[in-house]
Amino acid sequence: MLDAAVGDWLSVVALTAGPSGPDWLVPFLNLGLFVASAVTLLCAYRVVRGPTTPDRVVALDTIGTNVVAIAVLWAMIRGRGLFVDVALVLAIIGFVSTIAVARYVTEGDIVE
């Protein structure tokens, strides 16, 4: 009984399923993960160093987009749809925050 429950839980949460596509796709997905991570590091440099506020805002937005890409690539590599939900929620919140910050930069206040 307990074993069955733990097995159910693992089947939902486990990260060790196969890829959701053909096997030859996996190296390309790994390459995509590598590129997205590298670009995220470059954006972190721009966030720390960026001379103006819009530079930092755009860099933070790009970091958010990269995290979405990493989540989707991870979902494809591991064959788990959970990470697509994570990517959706991250994308929505990143979109709203970007609009809020853009309005703060241009108008000075967010909600009129």
Partner: peptide, 26 residues
């Protein structure tokens, strides 16, 4: 029984209302 639930759904609904606040005004 899957990732999700009341908290994140509430956060997303509040984000949608925040979008309306920002774009169309209170």
């Amino acid at each position: 029984n899957l990732p999700g639930g009341g908290f994140i759904a509430g956060v997303l609904t509040a984000a949608a209302f925040a979008l309306v606040y920002i774009v169309f005004g209170m």
